[in-house]
C-alpha cells in the first residue's frame, strides 16, 4: 500500500511524516519524529502509556492512525514543559515521587493534565476515577494522586 504524507503540528511546530495508512500515531511520533517519550504498554487501549493530546484532548495514540490526525495539533510529553519550566503536574510527580520506573509516567502526566483541565479542583475520588485510563504497576497510585493534588494546589495558589 502506498505511503502518504501527513502534516501535523507537534508541540507547536509544523511537521510532516510519511506513513502507511496503517501506521499508528504513536509509531509516527516515536519513529519518525524521534519523540520517544510516548510509550506503548499494551495493544488493547487499556494502559494509557501512549496518551498524547490531540487538539487539547487526551487520546491514546496507539488507537489512532497517523492519517486520522492530519492538520491537528499534537502535544506530547516532550512539549509539556515550557521554556525549561516544568508544568505543575510534572513538578508534582517529581515532588511527590509519583513515578518509579517512569514507563507509564508520560501518559500518566498527560492524563493528569487533561483531568485538571476538565476539573481543576478534583476530589481524591475524582482523581482516582479520572485516571482510570492509565495503568501503573509500580506506585500503587497513591503518590500519583498526591502529585495531581500538588498540581491542583499549585495552580490554585
Amino acid at each position: 500500500m502506498g505511503q502518504v504524507t501527513v502534516t501535523l503540528n507537534v508541540n507547536g511546530r509544523n511537521r510532516k511524516v510519511t506513513v502507511e495508512p496503517r501506521t499508528l500515531l504513536v509509531h509516527a511520533l516515536r519513529e519518525q519524529l524521534g519523540l520517544t517519550g510516548t510509550h506503548v504498554g499494551c495493544d488493547t487501549s487499556q494502559c494509557g502509556a501512549c496518551t498524547v493530546f490531540v487538539n487539547g484532548q487526551s487520546v491514546k495514540s496507539c488507537t489512532l492512525f497517523a492519517v486520522q490526525v492530519e492538520g491537528d495539533a499534537i502535544t506530547t510529553i516532550e512539549g509539556v514543559a515550557k521554556d525549561g519550566e516544568l508544568h505543575p503536574v510534572q513538578e508534582g510527580f517529581w515532588e511527590e515521587h509519583g513515578l518509579q520506573c517512569g514507563y507509564c509516567t508520560p501518559g500518566m502526566i498527560m492524563a493528569s493534565i487533561d483531568l485538571l483541565n476538565t476539573n481543576p479542583q478534583p476530589t481524591e475520588a475524582e482523581i482516582r476515577d479520572g485516571l482510570c485510563g492509565n495503568l501503573c504497576r509500580c506506585t500503587g497510585y497513591q503518590h500519583i494522586v498526591n502529585a495531581v493534588q500538588y498540581a491542583a494546589e499549585k495552580v490554585k495558589a
Binding site: R30, E31, L35, T36, G37, T38, H39, V40, T76, I77, E78, V80, A81, L86, Q90, F93, W94, E95, H97, L99, G102, Y103, T105, P106, I109
Partner: peptide, 21 residues
C-alpha cells in the same frame, strides 16, 4: 529526598530499549 532520576523521566527524556535506533 526527591529523586534525581525524575527530571528526565517526567519530560519523556528517558531512553528505554525501544527508543534505541
Amino acid at each position: 529526598i526527591k529523586r534525581r532520576e525524575d527530571p528526565r523521566l517526567i519530560q519523556g527524556r528517558g531512553t528505554y530499549v525501544d527508543d534505541i535506533k
